[in-house]
């Protein structure tokens, strides 16, 4: 028990996080760049075209990783919020604050690529497709968390309010998702969903898997980097941050 507490305490110390993240970050950047480059080349040039959708199918390699990441980032944000609320670990809140804009950006990317994909598939830019609708709602959830954090003048209140809202949101996401799926099947039963097919051949799903892993690495690397910046911003009065500024001159 004592060991666990000291570990949690250590993990919570911005100084310790600043050091360990500096060592971890390069690996995630390398992985992100390598995986995204390989996945892009494979997905764009080498994967076979879809027999129904032709080459427009290649949008899947950006649409699905972005959608995965958009959902995962919200969950990570809520977990970070919980950690912050329970153990008062400031770094968790800093990371949550830095994740939100990236999550919103990923949601936007998945919406945009979905809309563009809709043109050759459905003949229209927007369809109230279950996946797109859930993504749109997720975007609003992100904007709500970002707006709430920005609305408070006290940083501590802002952090705790954003944490609560992220947790409320994460409980609601599956409910929203299932109700939207249910609503969609009720109203448009026979429409073709863009990504709703099983049994993709290996040449198609392998690059997708690589892209998904690449996007996740990118998320981790960027969050580490921006959390380090946030530490500098919030802890600028601490002795060790001053010393750091002296060293990196």
């Amino acid at each position: 028990m004592g060991m666990i507490w000291s570990f949690i305490h250590k993990l919570g110390s911005p100084k310790w996080f600043y050091g360990i993240s500096a060592r971890l970050m390069p690996w995630f950047w390398v992985a992100a760049v390598a995986l995204i480059l390989v996945g892009s080349a494979w997905g764009l040039a080498f994967a076979p075209a879809d027999y129904q959708q032709g080459n427009s199918f290649r949008i899947i390699y950006v649409h699905v990783p972005a959608a995965f990441l958009a959902q995962s980032i919200f969950v990570s944000m809520a977990v970070a919020g919980l950690v912050y609320m329970v153990w008062k670990i400031k770094v968790a809140d800093m990371a949550a604050a830095m994740m939100a804009p990236l999550g919103a950006a990923m949601t936007f990317v998945s919406l945009f690529s979905g809309a563009v994909w809709g043109v050759p598939t459905w003949g229209t830019w927007w369809m109230w497709d279950a996946r797109l609708t859930s993504m749109l709602i997720l975007l609003f959830l992100y904007l709500g968390v970002i707006a709430l954090r920005g609305a408070f003048t006290s940083r501590d209140s802002a952090s705790r309010a954003a944490s609560v809202l992220a947790m409320v949101g994460v409980i609601n996401i599956p409910i929203i998702k299932y109700s939207v799926d249910w609503w969609y099947t009720l109203h448009q039963p026979a429409t073709f969903t863009i990504t709703g097919r099983a049994a993709m051949p290996m040449e198609m799903w392998a690059p997708l898997l690589i892209m998904v892993l690449g996007f996740y690495s990118f998320f981790i690397a960027l969050t580490l980097m921006r959390t380090r910046s946030e530490i500098l911003r919030r802890e600028s009065n601490k002795r060790w941050v001053r010393d750091l500024a002296g060293e990196t001159r």
Binding site: S113, V116, W117
Partner: peptide, 12 residues
């Protein structure tokens, strides 16, 4: 892109 260039390239 088999005629789908505007869509694929704009999304990517």
């Amino acid at each position: 892109m088999g005629g789908h260039a505007p869509y694929v390239w704009s999304a990517w």
